[in-house]
Design a protein around this nucleic acid. Structure first.
Lengths: 172, 172
DNA sequence: GTCTATATCAAGATAGAC
DNA sequence: GTCTATCTTGATATAGAC
């Protein structure tokens, strides 16, 4: 799949041949579906973004569970979807890779972080005043991305698990 | 300079022509100094690593200043040297770019994070028990790298400044 | 819709003149 | 030590047969 190839190898270090091979096609066949490599990445990021909105960040808005349980459910799903995959976090990886470049799909990256921050803030607001909730959310997101970085480098999930526990412990 | 080019454009997205141009040379001339692009990056990271060891992380060991003042001095210098440059943090950027690849200079990246963690832990230990100090150090490093990511994406220093204040406020 | 073949270009790297 | 010229390879992308 294109997603896992991009996540493992990065955007610039992934070639059309790599993508074609991962999808069981020849290079030429790929251009029947997408006009360019940039369009493929844009499509990959769009579907990640939509999935997160619909299946992960939406958990924050639920009313069936206590705030703390919602936070736990959301973080667990986020961990599985985004962070504990081989290659880490496609959103974080790609953000650092293209931050300085002039590339269309940067808007999608921004929107993921915005939705992520909103979801975290929404849950924290049930235990904290608005300003504090926003700061805690920001802090958690940054810690998660930092943890993915160290988890990648040292090939260990420990950093990620620590942040998971620490974030959850902030809920009453 | 090679450092700023790699920091702005990343490892794979920087070509030998880019590096040569940034140094005011022709492509061919570059191979008089370095045998390959990988060797250039290795050399860049080595000098960053050595600079941090000698001029930044060493501050943690000083005895002339109070722990809190040492932390502030170190974080300020770290911010200038590593984080608030155009393109963000060469260490963090490169880590995510090559984490899954088989590349020699990954060892240098690891050693920077180890030294960074040690330095932070050393200062925290003056106000906290050892275990807590280690956890606070880890948390701070991850927050810093997460903050650089968001600062890059939104082209704002605010995230970084927030972490700076938050980290410093943990010292008595 | 998938393939093979190919066009075009830029990449990393080398050779040799000056 | 720096240049120009060039080699080789692999990249993105296209054309056209099946």
């Amino acid at each position: 799949m294109a997603l896992s190839t991009f996540r493992k190898s990065g955007y610039y270090n992934t070639s059309m041949s790599d993508l074609a091979e991962a999808c069981g096609l020849q290079k030429g066949s790929f251009y029947h579906y997408f006009p360019s490599k940039e369009a493929i990445m844009a499509s990959v990021l769009d579907s990640v973004c939509q999935y997160l909105k619909a299946k992960v960040f939406s958990i924050a808005q639920g009313t069936d569970l206590e705030p703390r349980a919602r936070m736990e459910k959301m973080l667990l799903k986020l961990g599985k979807a985004l962070l504990s995959q081989e290659g880490g976090c496609i959103i974080g990886n790609t953000t650092l890779e293209v931050a300085g470049q002039d590339i269309a799909f940067k808007a999608t990256l921004k929107s993921v972080f915005e939705d992520w921050l909103s979801a975290m803030t929404h849950i924290f607001k049930e235990d904290y005043p608005e300003g504090t909730a926003g700061r805690l959310a920001q802090q958690s997101v940054m810690e998660f991305e930092g943890a993915v970085m160290l988890s990648q480098l040292y090939d260990s999930d420990q950093y990620l698990k620590d942040v998971f526990v620490r974030t959850l412990s902030k809920m009453k």
